[in-house]
């Protein structure tokens, strides 16, 4: 028998840690979604699909800007010492993923804006006629357009990876401490983005391509989830306990039903039938993927805080 009693009861820490509420999962979800949209948009530019006037690459930047700003606002809401937020930008700490993230976000904005300037939204262009000149300037330079595409893919990739690395570098929380986490968040970001873009794309060809791509991402996601859990199960006692939180512990029902079932497997089946023309494309599968991606972030953030070296002793 081992019994531990403590006199400590610090708020947000005891009996189990819950320093991060809804704000961080929402931030990580939106970050991943925008990352995926940047990669898709960048790829469409790179592969010359932008020559089609209806290409979704002209719609995505403004949506990305809005979602990313919402995500950053959500992060800001989580800060406890809000007036000091500018301190993030008075230094760069190479060992801190959060510092990396703060600076990556600063680079992400101009890259999305460059993408947007390829065809500024009408409501902005009507107020600033100079934007037409910039648009013409860009379209006269194919190399510049290629660079915009590549930099969107590159920074989108960095943003997506960062949302996972932020958590996975914390050795103190066994559930997060897996090198598969950044892969999971990147792939999940890509699958949610492909789902969203599939719904808003006007071009039939693009929609079909995105549905197929999404099926690929969802398939990879199943494997990555499996590898994450196997990795934890074959590690130390605390890591095994952390994996059990998802397998048959308190977070298992939500994990299996909302993330694996409704977030990946069922939409994958629906979309496989749709791309093989057995059923019609509907927004049902994409919405399930998006909601599943959001719930995945919630479960990983909450269960990760719960997973602990101390809890291993309590059990």
């Amino acid at each position: 028998m081992q019994e531990l009693t403590t006199t400590r009861h610090n708020p947000q820490i005891d009996p189990t840690m819950h320093v991060w509420g809804w704000e961080i999962p929402v931030y990580l979800f939106l970050g991943g979604l925008v990352a995926g949209m940047m990669i898709i948009s960048g790829y469409f530019i790179f592969s010359k699909r932008f020559k089609n006037k209806d290409c979704v690459t002209y719609t995505l930047p403004i949506i990305s800007l809005i979602l990313l700003s919402l995500g950053m606002f959500s992060l800001f809401l989580d800060l406890e010492h809000k007036f000091f937020v500018w301190r993030l930008y008075t230094t760069f700490k190479i060992s801190s993923p959060m510092s990396w993230g703060a600076w990556i976000l600063i680079l992400v904005y101009p890259v999305i804006i460059a993408n947007m300037l390829m065809d500024p939204p009408k409501f902005i262009a009507s107020k600033f006629p100079q934007l037409h000149k910039i648009k013409d300037y860009i379209h006269e330079r194919p190399a510049l357009i290629q660079n915009i595409g590549v930099s969107n893919m590159l920074l989108g990739g960095m943003l997506g990876v960062y949302t996972g690395v932020l958590l996975s570098t914390m050795g103190s929380r066994p559930l997060w401490n897996s090198s598969m986490l950044w892969v999971l968040f990147l792939v999940s970001g890509l699958s949610t983005a492909a789902a969203l873009v599939h719904m808003i794309a006007k071009d039939v060809d693009e929609r079909e391509l995105l549905a197929k791509a999404d099926n690929g991402f969802l398939t990879i996601e199943i494997f990555v989830l499996g590898l994450l859990i196997i990795g934890l199960l074959t590690s130390s006692a605390v890591h095994i306990n952390a994996a059990k939180l998802l397998i048959d512990g308190p977070y298992a029902p939500a994990f299996w039903v909302f993330v694996v079932g409704m977030g990946v497997v069922i939409p994958l089946i629906i979309q496989l039938l749709a791309v093989n023309h057995k059923i019609k494309h509907t927004p049902i599968a994409p919405i399930m993927v998006i909601v599943g991606g959001l719930i995945l972030r919630f479960i990983i953030v909450q269960a990760g805080q719960y997973s602990h070296y101390l809890n291993a002793h309590f059990r």
Binding site: D78, R87, S172, H308
Partner: peptide
């Protein structure tokens, strides 16, 4: 210099830190 991001609270395996009511 602290922005109250709570990364350090999560990173400590001893849960030795907390957020002061001042943030």
């Amino acid at each position: 210099m602290c922005i109250g991001c709570k990364a350090c609270l999560a990173a400590c395996p001893y849960d030795a830190r907390f957020v002061h009511p001042d943030g």
